[in-house]
Amino acid sequence: MNLIYFALIRENIGKSSEQITLPNNVTTTGQLINYLMTLGDNYQAAFSQSDLIRLAVNQEYVNLDHPISDGDEIAIFPPMTGG
């Protein structure tokens, strides 16, 4: 699975993208966030406030209960501040 990070989440994690293999018990976007938080302090810092996490699966905005599979591109980022 291809993960992409933006803005403060990208800076906290320390990379802009990465490839991971999904553990079998990770089937939703919310479970993915919980799983990533077990990978290190940088991920915990990035995802410490769940209300400041937004996601897109294959470039469509989704919630934390969205199903995911290994071929998906998942982008994780803070609330948008353009305009």
């Binding site: 803005a7 403060l8 980022f77 803070p78 948008m80 501040t81 353009g82 305009g83």
Partner: peptide, 26 residues
């Protein structure tokens, strides 16, 4: 369009000030 763009278009602002830099909060 502007009201929707502020919350729905994937852009993020970071400000550089004399006190340092920070991401703008929504």
């Amino acid at each position: 369009i502007m009201d929707w763009l502020k919350t729905d278009a994937p852009f993020w602002k970071k400000e550089q000030t004399e006190q340092g830099e920070h991401w703008v909060g929504a």
